[in-house]
Write a protein that binds this DNA or RNA. Sequence first.
DNA 1: ATGGCGATTTATAACGATATAATTGCTGTC
DNA 2: GACAGCAATTATATCGTTATAAATCGCCAT
Lengths: 350, 350
Amino acid sequence: MSLEDLGDKGRRAKSQRATEKPRVDAKPTLKTIAELTGLAVTTVSHALADAPQIALETRQRVRKVAADIGYLPDRAAQRLRTGRTNVISLVLDPHEEILGYATSMINGLTEALRGTAYHLVITPHFSDTPQIDPVRHIMRNRMADGIVFTRTEPADERVKLLMENNFPFICHGRTELATAHPYVDYDNYSFAYQAAKKLIAAGARRLSIILPPERFTFAHHLRHGFMTAVREEGVGFEIAKGVTLDSKSDDIRDYLFRRMAEPERPDGYICGGEVSALAVMASVYDHQLELGQDIRLVAKQTSGLFDQIRPRVETIYEDLTEAGLLMGKLLLKRIAGPAPIAELQALQTV
Amino acid sequence: MSLEDLGDKGRRAKSQRATEKPRVDAKPTLKTIAELTGLAVTTVSHALADAPQIALETRQRVRKVAADIGYLPDRAAQRLRTGRTNVISLVLDPHEEILGYATSMINGLTEALRGTAYHLVITPHFSDTPQIDPVRHIMRNRMADGIVFTRTEPADERVKLLMENNFPFICHGRTELATAHPYVDYDNYSFAYQAAKKLIAAGARRLSIILPPERFTFAHHLRHGFMTAVREEGVGFEIAKGVTLDSKSDDIRDYLFRRMAEPERPDGYICGGEVSALAVMASVYDHQLELGQDIRLVAKQTSGLFDQIRPRVETIYEDLTEAGLLMGKLLLKRIAGPAPIAELQALQTV
DNA sequence: ATGGCGATTTATAACGATATAATTGCTGTC
DNA sequence: GACAGCAATTATATCGTTATAAATCGCCAT
């Protein structure tokens, strides 16, 4: 702020038509457009909102000027006045996984938000606090207009809370609650079912499925699909539970190493995640067995990783980017106006 | 939220407007605290800012009431008034990589931002627009108080622009510009140097290094470290350039497949990324060669992935979560007050 | 008393947008 | 020519916070 500016400001107070152009870089506001067009700030606001009571000619003129000077509405002011934040919160659990589960989903979400006024904010959920905390915080303090989260549980507290308060959200995976809620999910039942059928068709006679922790709903879906298939075919089976998602734990590696040394070992594995598939492969290698010969494997593929891995593994693809995109779109629709719940459901089929 | 809660809320609403809109939970503001304490809004504001001219007793009283009712300042109002956004923007290039480069960094950043007023916003850089666009947009429209980006280039336009405008930022990787700038980088020179030495010590006599595209500064560092080592040792070498980071391209796989079939093939590979390391392993497998015997490999490890991979690969670790954490801390320091540039530099040594 | 001073507290005016209500200008009607 | 009726524009108040300037108070020296 220089003395000249002050002087100029003083002049403006008396004669409103002073040819002022001191600051070129000043961020354009509605006031800027108002001065340039000779209209009132209110009119400009309405014109940009495409209000029908503003003359079409005026609307076009205002829009042109706005575009010319590169006007963008101030998010803070809009947010303060309207209460809408134009923010979508993605609740992420850091340290959860070594592979890019989150990255794919973020890519899908940003794609869905592209061209809209919405920004994507990453809200971390720190493992030393209850899972519900970040969600409650976002809701209570209106930190976002909508929430995205993952790893849905059968009786997910977050879903309950958000539904009770009618707060827009979408989650990856389903609950088993009576009340319907918006979600995007992959058909893990079919995945496990088809994976089992493939293994059996290839000659496997004792199947093992490596399941994520029971607290996630999709673990149940995997199990049911698996069980249906092995019962239909009447083959032997076993279930390895509790792959911690961060794969720091050695439970599964211990199980695999032990079982593969035994004579009655499984000859067909189903892995619901890439990490556990790698663990199976590692164990096969360590036992000097041959994949596809001694032991078969069907894995869920959620990235390009398995295109690079040798020996080649049979996989079934789950497109997490697409899931993110879909979640973003459905959430935006939900925010725009409470669409019927049923329409908000979506299922990716294998 | 029960009916009782609503009733309680209505009673609290002072007097006449008992049957107003069913506002779930009126958000506490400075005004709320002012009414509860009998002070003026201004006083409360100053008290919470711990202004010295407010009596200590008053400050404590205000803080207590604020904590009791769970007061949180309205971000939009603060932002509108002060111009500070309390936002850090991470500029991400979607579709860039199959592995979780971004996830680790996000985890580090959120850790650095934990407990502060800052939120992390993901700003995508869409590949059909110039790289500089999101940075310029954030700066011009004050979308954030600081910017984080990656994949720094030798004459990076983003660095130039941000430095010219004195806008807080930090980047992963360095430029080769004359003017110093804040960054966090990994010592890729030493990585390549040591990797080469290891391979030679293990018996390799013709080394090949798989480099990322030349436009990234760290490709040069890798090359220099590599060249220094092979010259010192006087072994044969070759350089495979241009691993596109999204690994969609087959250039490298073609190169590997061709070279491994030739008699004068390299017997030691250095990979600056996990994807290219997998490509080497895949090619070794496809040629029915043996890793560690016919062909040796030293790879950069940036995730837990290679702990799972067999055969075991010799790796040197780069901690991207730590890099993210460091970037976050340095950026916050830079935002708080323009610290000397020199202090903002950091280097992770192998 | 009077004025002044330091220590606290408070009033006022913004920041940039929008919801609401009010105003202007113009037309046609009787 | 007065006025209702309508379209188009504008004034005012407000969201919650903070920067700035002003006001209040007790207390002491003159």
